[in-house]
Design a protein around this nucleic acid. Structure first.
Lengths: 267, 267
DNA sequence: CGCCTATTTGACCTTTCTCAATAGATGTGG
DNA sequence: CCACATCTATTGAGAAAGGTCAAATAGGCG
């Protein structure tokens, strides 16, 4: 599992939901890939029957519904994700897959996934699990849009992205790259861009996070989790051990906040 | 494909998304089932590792998130659907599956689905398609909640349910059984029950539908489709031929309304 | 008939949207 | 390196959609 190879991030992702054997890793290492560096808002799947999947290596991509008002974003993917795995089994695509900020993706032929499914029952299961985990995220996002207010929606999205990044070894210090515009955020959360702006300001004022120079720094993880009512079970990760107790490694104002909370709880 | 057998509605559903061979039908006919008649708000999956799937034969079931405020409903299923097929591959369940109104379901052992997947590649593909179609619905529901207002959300839900019922041979006359309470509708659409009530009144006033004695009668299908911006592609149905031109078979006030619209368009 | 639940209504309040203007950033060609 | 064009973020004010609470009404059912 060396870094630097396309399959490696994917292996991390698979390993985050199921156990991989060394045979599985061997299969993954033989993945044929063609790497592209893409600019912001680059549209993958130029409208036709796809014959390849997009494996995200760096950055973010999202599905966006072009039809809807303000282009609702239905899901956001992080490195290691294979957003369009479903196209291997169902050629139809009704939403646009596009980059948020610049991204690095590997193009992997459908054929490869068909072959490893035949060669290895455990890989076949793993791919299915990937599809199912995706569906769980969608279901959870419905809950988010349907039952939370703007503030908690945004907080929940940040919790989700952070957790998913950490599951593939990124954002260890609770700093996540954020090439998102506030309009992107708004499109994901089903709110207006102006309102998104105001929400972010409030999250900042509450000392939950910072967002500057294309980086979001979560300065109070526990606070954010509590605000969002975030429970990562739906991500289907094998281990995330105590989401509430992720070390707040960065030495920020938060430390003070948290100790004062603890103080408040003492007799 | 006689009616009266549990597998029959399921065969209809599968046939609505892929072509079935007679071998496939034979396999389906051997489905081991145990039928139950359930009352309203009956909770399936009593909390444990499920070993059986729930095949819906009559009525409606839904997934509802118990955690969220007002219990967000994330999907609604119609006869022929197999809402928890995913539990065959991933034991975890984080939402409650419950009946909306009374329903008839068949319990089918997971084992059966594993066996037919091994015996028939085409059945294996069919089940996968079912899972993927479900995901498409979820994605579309995100668009609905995220980008439409209350009125169009409700209209869209009615369009979806009607279309899915018609795909398995029901609601031919645009009358759909509606054991839903207005609170159920509200929970599905992410709005308050009071607002749901007002929306329904407005749909009635607009002569788009009637809702009385547990039956919804769509009196202006084209109007409803237009209002909702409903495009059934995401349902992945093989044939629904001209959604805009479904015959308005019932002789209702609508006919007058529509002709008056046409009149209004004449010079 | 009476109870229980679901629907309906009204009044008032909160959240969020829209529009419009300003300020800041980023990037490009000269 | 500057001036301009463009995109993004921020702010304010007023409007609309939807929420909440509470009471009244209507159905369904034992």
């Amino acid at each position: 599992m060396q870094t630097g190879f396309a399959f490696s991030k994917f292996a991390d992702r698979l390993a985050s939901i199921i156990e991989l054997s060394s045979d599985d890793l061997d299969l993954l290492a033989r993945m044929p890939t063609s790497i592209s560096h893409l600019g912001p808002r680059h549209r993958l799947h130029k409208g036709d029957q796809p014959s390849h999947c997009c494996l995200l290596l760096q950055g973010y991509v999202c599905y966006q519904d072009a039809e809807s008002r303000d282009g609702q974003i239905t899901s956001i993917y992080v490195p290691g994700d294979l957003p369009d795995l479903h196209t291997v089994y169902d050629g139809r695509v009704d939403h646009e897959l596009l980059t948020l900020g610049s991204a690095v993706v590997a193009s992997v032929p459908h054929r490869y996934f068909r072959e490893i499914s035949v060669l290895s029952p455990s890989m076949s299961r793993a791919l299915l699990r990937l599809l199912l985990a995706d569906a769980c995220c969608l279901r959870n996002w419905i809950v988010n849009l349907g039952s939370r207010d703007a503030m908690t929606r945004v907080a929940h999205l940040f919790c989700e992205i952070t957790t998913r990044l950490r599951a593939v070894g990124l954002a260890k210090d609770l700093r996540i790259p954020s090439p998102f515009t506030q309009s992107d955020l708004a499109a994901a959360c089903g709110i207006s861009a102006v309102h998104a702006n105001r929400i972010i300001q409030e999250l900042r004022r509450s000392n939950l996070l910072r967002w500057q120079s294309k980086t979001i720094t979560i300065t109070d993880w526990n606070g954010l989790v509590r605000l969002a009512g975030f429970n990562p079970d739906y991500l289907r990760l094998r281990e995330y051990n105590n989401i509430e107790n992720i070390e707040q490694e960065s030495a920020l104002a938060t430390t003070i906040d948290r100790s004062s909370i603890v103080d408040a709880l003492l007799p």
